[in-house]
Simulated scan of single mutants.
Amino acid sequence: MDSRAEAVYREMLEGTPGGVAELATRAGTTEPEVREALDRLVGLGLLTPSREAAGGLRAVSLEAGLEHLLRRQEEELAKRHHALVAGKAAAARAIAEYSALHPDADRQGNERLLGLDAIQARLEVLTRRLSEECLSIIPGRAQSAASLEASRSLDEQALNRKVRMRAVYQESSRNDPATFEYAQWTTERGGEVRTTPVLPGRLLVFDRTTALVPIDPDNSRLGALCTTSPGIVATIVALFEQTWEAAVPLGAVRSRDPEDGIDQTERELLKLLGSGMTDEAASKRLGVSARTVRRQMSALMERLQAASRFEAGLKAAQRGWL
């Protein structure tokens, strides 16, 4: 019941004679609004036909009116409860039917999610169920605008529930404004973010019971594997913790080792190229362009006073950089 209907009801309780015009004056409103309020009060059972005035209305006593309203609310709550129970039962049946018919799920708790839409749908469910912790490794220099937008509302809901969120980004993501801004946004709301030059494949772990990893690390659009297998999840969690320990907080600046004169990114670059990787392959692992790799390697060769990359590798090894 809104304030206008309440005012009309109070005036009717007073029992002062008069019609719609008088009610409008006393209630401080207009005649059309009074008529609307009267209809609403009749619908609520607070006004009934008068036994004295033909076609007139009388107000039900306040005690009887409140009792009537409470009874109506109880009936509505009962209906909602029955509807909720029926909805849960229907959802349970639908889930059971889906599990029985879905060809990509197996008895070991593994399911293939094919395509970005399927992944996003599962992420929405898993994020809403989060109660304690979410772990993620996010390789690549830049995240797409669509990916960031899809993640923001889900992450915000989890952070508002005080879920601990830990994420490791690639060091090169600091150079992408949108990705770096999102990482800062996460930390400002209580999340923890670290960065490291080289990362394993993308992964997500929910409450240490469910993990998502891409089917093809080189093409996340193909889909993901969702697993609740304890052995697989435990291995993925261990990989995350190892990566987390080697990373530095988002706000920290990596400095060169005062003894070695080399920072972690340069050390990783030397290792990658020393293992036989091409500039293009190394750039992909570091999340930078091949041009950046060549520029960084050129600077290292100059510092090492090496005429070739082979000589640079030998001198780096001699200095203990590798």
Rank of each mutant, 00 (worst) to 15 (best):
Ile119Ala: 12
Lys88Leu: 12
Val163Arg: 06
Arg254His: 15
Gly28Pro: 07
Gln157Glu: 14
Gly287Met: 00
Ala150Lys: 05
Ser144Val: 03
Ala246Tyr: 03
Arg26Tyr: 00
Ala312Arg: 00
Glu149Asn: 13
Gly223Trp: 08
Arg152Ser: 11
Ala89Ile: 00
Gly45Thr: 11
Ser298Leu: 15
Gly191Val: 14
Glu14Asn: 05
Ala307Lys: 06
Met12Val: 06
Val125Gly: 01
Thr235Val: 07
Arg128Ser: 03
Leu84Ser: 09
Thr186Gly: 02
Ile95Arg: 10
Asp2Met: 10
Glu6Phe: 09
Ala21Phe: 10
Glu33Ala: 10
Thr195Lys: 07
Thr196Tyr: 09
Met297Asp: 15
Val20Gln: 00
Asp106Thr: 03
Leu135Asn: 05
Pro103Gly: 15
Tyr9Phe: 11
Glu181Met: 04
Leu203Glu: 04
Leu41Glu: 00
Ala150Arg: 06
Leu250Ala: 09
Ala24Gln: 03
Gly274Pro: 02
Arg128Ala: 08
Glu241Val: 00
Val60Leu: 08
Val8Arg: 00
Ala238Thr: 15
Leu222Gln: 08
Tyr9His: 12
Thr127Phe: 14
Ile119Arg: 12
Thr195Trp: 03
Ala54Val: 13
Ala247Met: 05
Ala234Gly: 04
Ala78His: 05
Glu6Tyr: 10
Asp39Val: 13
Phe240His: 08
Ala89Met: 02
Gln305Tyr: 03
Arg164Val: 11
Pro200Val: 01
Gln170Ser: 07
Thr278Ala: 01
Asp279His: 10
Arg174Asn: 07
Gly320Gln: 07
Val213Trp: 01
Thr195His: 12
Leu69Val: 09
Leu13Phe: 04
Pro17Lys: 13
Val34Arg: 00
Arg93Leu: 08
Pro139Ala: 06
Ser144Gly: 00
Leu314Thr: 15
Glu52Leu: 11
Pro258Ser: 08
Val253Met: 14
Ser275Leu: 12
Val237Gln: 10
Asn175Arg: 12
Asp117Pro: 11
His82Tyr: 07
Thr292Asn: 03
Thr187Gly: 02
Leu314Ala: 13
Arg194Gly: 06
Pro230Ala: 05
Ala118Gln: 09
Gly56Val: 06
Asp117Gly: 07
Gln157His: 06
Val125Tyr: 12
Asp207Phe: 06
Ala299Phe: 01
Ala121Asp: 15
Leu225Asp: 13
Leu204His: 04
Gly201Thr: 09
Glu52Ile: 12
Ala100Pro: 13
Pro32Thr: 02
Asp216Lys: 06
Pro103Gln: 13
Glu133His: 13
Ala91Phe: 05
Arg221Tyr: 09
Arg291Phe: 09
Thr179Gly: 10
Leu269Pro: 06
Met165Thr: 05
